[in-house]
Design a protein around this nucleic acid. Structure first.
Lengths: 241, 241
DNA sequence: TCTCGTATGATGGTATACCATAAGATCACG
DNA sequence: CGTGATCTTATGGTATACCATCATACGAGA
């Protein structure tokens, strides 16, 4: 009888979900992971720089066990590589890798964007509108980090609205690997203009439920970023291809 | 002068690469990682099963430090999840996730296959031919593991021939997450026939340098697998949708 | 008989100790 | 002055010790 009271149909009582005490097992490791990851993404460590375990222990104030597990995690994420006989270093990125990352992003993001254009509900469209408005407000300030965050939120909305959590996860990781590149890209002439413009194209296509146009705009958005990145990363390609 | 001798143009002397003694720093951790990963993929541990650290220490004969770092690695790969207040367990996979994985594979593999159809050189085509012939020889034996390995090699050739190492890495990881599913899929009626057939379609399209046909065949290949997986994973979908 | 409290054992989180090795410096010898 | 050997030190790899917490079981009392 009690059973009936507390688990009536197993799905018709979502209220009970909210009762759940989501334990904050904010472990040392998780904090250290976030700190270190952000530090690397922010460029606090330069690519190729050695990450000496004991030094990190002092800097983060935790023991080596924690540091080592965090390094393993970041290694799997691609932010850290382990040089043989030398230990962990901040991963370097060359143009060959960066180009591949942009290619994967094109493959995944065009898919998500097209799907969103097909199936987006009103709430999603509203959310995208809000994000774009914020972006417009901020783009004038030319603050790279702010624009980056808004761009991320824009695509996150698109991915998650279609239930593509795994693809979004992949894209997030790839983006963290080219984070420096993305910031540099945004510092480039009028990228702070062309980026939001492309995103508005995508948005309009989604509003019209036009998957093809959305795909095209999305591809253009990423491809432009890739072009700028290439000019930054490949010395000979600064204007003359 | 010595400098000129040993690093002439930095790229015109690939022979020096072969001189490199690739140190085999086959660390305990790497061995344990491979063992444990294979064990999970092979289904030695069932999904949801707890992975008690100290038990694994005994089973693998290493200390907890190693085990914990390996678990972190597998966690990032998606093969292991850490339940709060309970510790690491073998990741479960539901249909929602599996479907997403198939979707990502479609996005990445169609891209790679189309690119291969556009640019494949003779050596690549030859390699693919060999792989398919091996597959044909073995498919009659209906040995799921062998077929799986050949399928993997087929796609690996396609990805790597186009220089898509990162995308291939992603696909490999995703595949390990649905490994059980893939084996089950192959055990299904005539999947051991339809799979190779689709791969031959892809191969023929690549031979003809026909990216569109290759894309279509590749999508069909994965979509078929996804259909079978769905019928296995979703009880109500066994034949009547 | 049921419920509540306590105790005990297991488990993960964290820190530290030890060891082998590789890189760098110093010094002796040619 | 240069070359080479040796010693020192720093570093990562590995193992172990300690602790807080959670779950289970058992027992006492209503």
């Amino acid at each position: 009888m009690n059973q009936n009271l507390f688990a009536p149909t197993d799905e018709t009582v979502p209220n009970l979900e909210s009762l759940r005490i989501d334990t904050p097992p904010v472990t040392l490791r998780e904090m250290a992971l976030e700190r270190l990851r952000n530090a690397i993404i922010a460029g606090l460590f330069s690519p190729g720089q050695r990450l000496v375990e004991r030094t990190l222990c002092d800097q983060l104030g935790v023991s080596r066990s924690v540091i080592r597990e965090v390094l393993r995690h970041l290694e799997t994420e691609g932010l850290v590589e382990t040089a043989p006989k030398q230990g962990p270093i901040v991963a370097r990125i060359d143009w060959h890798q960066a180009r591949q990352i942009y290619d994967v992003r094109i493959a995944l993001e065009t898919t998500a964007v097209a799907d969103c254009a097909r199936n987006a509900d009103a709430a999603t469209k509203e959310k995208l509108k809000t994000v774009l408005e914020d972006l417009d407000r901020n783009s004038r300030k030319n603050d790279a980090l702010t624009i980056l965050a808004a761009t991320t939120e824009f695509y996150e909305t698109i991915f998650l609205s279609g239930g593509h959590e795994i693809a979004w996860d992949i894209v997030k990781r790839l983006n963290s690997r080219i984070s420096r590149l993305r910031v540099m890209t945004l510092s480039t002439t009028n990228r702070t203009v062309s980026g939001p413009a492309r995103m508005r194209e995508i948005f309009n296509a989604i509003l019209r439920n036009d998957p093809d146009a959305a795909t095209t705009a999305c591809r253009a958005h990423i491809e432009e970023a890739a072009q700028i990145a290439e000019s930054l990363l490949v010395p000979g390609k600064h204007g003359k291809p």
